[in-house]
Amino acid sequence: TEIRININGVTIHVRDASEELKKLIEHLLRLGADEKEIREVLHRWEK
């Protein structure tokens, strides 16, 4: 699944996002995570 996240005008594009990762990101956004925090989570997730 491919997702695009727009945070304050900055688009983060994620290829091959699992449903689990998608739910995690949606949850973090609801909690008010910023772009830097989302990128950090994505970076750690890929490892």
Rank of each mutant, 00 (worst) to 15 (best):
K47N: 14
T1F: 09
I25H: 00
G9T: 05
I3A: 04
E2L: 03
H43A: 10
H27M: 11
V14K: 01
T11N: 10
V10N: 10
L28C: 06
I5D: 02
N8I: 04
E46A: 12
I38D: 00
S18I: 04
D16Q: 12
R15I: 13
T1N: 12
R44L: 15
W45T: 05
T1Q: 13
E2H: 11
L21P: 00
E35A: 11
E2S: 08
E26R: 04
I25K: 00
L42A: 01
W45A: 07
R4K: 13
H27D: 14
V41W: 05
V41T: 12
E37R: 11
H13P: 06
R15E: 09
E40T: 05
S18A: 09
N6K: 11
R4D: 09
V41Y: 04
K22I: 15
I12P: 01
E37Y: 08
L29N: 04
S18R: 05
L31Y: 10
T11Y: 02
N6T: 12
K23F: 10
E37Q: 10
E26S: 06
I7M: 09
R4M: 11
I38L: 08
E46S: 09
A33C: 07
I38R: 00
W45I: 10
V14A: 04
S18M: 05
E37C: 06
K47A: 14
G32L: 02
H13Q: 08
L29M: 11
K22R: 13
V10K: 11
L28P: 00
I7F: 03
E19N: 11
H27N: 14
A33F: 08
R30Y: 11
I7Y: 00
I38Y: 01
L24I: 14
W45P: 03
L31T: 14
T1G: 13
I7H: 05
A17E: 05
A33R: 05
I7P: 03
V14L: 09
D16P: 07
R39S: 04
I25F: 03
K47S: 14
A17W: 09
H43V: 09
E40G: 04
L21N: 00
E26C: 04
G32A: 03
I7G: 04
E19F: 07
N6G: 07
W45R: 02
E46K: 05
I7L: 10
G32D: 03
L31A: 15
T11E: 10
V14H: 05
I3H: 10
V14P: 02
E40W: 01
V10A: 10
L31I: 15
K36P: 05
R30H: 12
R30F: 15
H43S: 09
K36R: 10
G9R: 03
K23R: 09
I3Q: 04
E19R: 05
R44S: 14
H27W: 06
R44H: 13
K47H: 15
L24C: 02
H13L: 09
I12F: 00
L31M: 15
I38F: 06
R15W: 10
K22G: 08
D16Y: 12
K36C: 01
N6V: 12
H27S: 12
G32M: 02
V41K: 04
R30C: 06
L29T: 08
R39F: 09
L29C: 06
E46D: 11
H43Y: 03
N8L: 04
V10W: 00
A33S: 05
H27A: 12
N6E: 11
E40V: 02
T11I: 13
R15L: 13
G32F: 02
A33L: 10
K22P: 01
E40R: 05
N8G: 14
E46P: 11
L24T: 14
K47V: 14
D16T: 07
L31P: 01
L31G: 12
H27R: 07
I5P: 01
I3R: 03
R30M: 13
W45G: 04
E37V: 13
R4W: 06
H13D: 08
E40P: 00
D34H: 07
R44A: 15
D34G: 13
V10P: 03
V41E: 13
T1W: 03
A33I: 07
A17C: 04
A33P: 02
L21R: 01
K23T: 13
L42D: 00
N6W: 00
E2T: 10
R15N: 14
K36Q: 12
K22F: 15
L29V: 11
T1K: 09
E40M: 06
D34Q: 08
L28G: 01
K22C: 03
D16M: 09
E26D: 15
R39T: 08
K36G: 08
I3T: 05
N6Q: 10
E46R: 07
E35T: 07
G9Q: 08
L42M: 05
I12Y: 00
A33T: 11
V10F: 01
E19G: 07
W45K: 02
T11V: 14
L42H: 01
L24Q: 14
T11A: 14
T1C: 05
E2V: 06
I3M: 09
A33M: 07
N8E: 08
L31E: 11
G9K: 05
I38V: 08
E46W: 02
L42W: 00
L29F: 03
L28W: 03
T11S: 14
K47Y: 02
E37H: 14
I12L: 03
K36T: 12
K23D: 11
V10H: 12
L21S: 01
E2C: 09
I5G: 01
L31V: 12
E2Q: 08
D34E: 11
D34A: 07
I25V: 11
E20W: 05
E46H: 12
T11P: 05
G9A: 04
K22D: 03
V14R: 01
I38E: 00
L29Q: 09
E46M: 12
K23C: 08
R30I: 14
L28D: 00
S18D: 10
I5L: 06
K22S: 13
R4P: 08
S18P: 15
D16L: 05
I38M: 05
E26P: 00
N6M: 09
V14T: 03
L42C: 01
E19K: 08
T1I: 15
D34I: 04
E2Y: 00
R15C: 03
A33W: 07
I25D: 00
L29Y: 03
I38A: 00
I5F: 02
K22Y: 13
I25C: 01
V10D: 07
G9S: 08
L29A: 08
G32W: 01
K22L: 15
K47L: 12
R39E: 12
I25P: 00
A17S: 06
E35D: 14
L42P: 00
R44C: 12
N8R: 06
R4C: 07
R4H: 14
H27Y: 07
L21F: 07
E20H: 04
L24N: 08
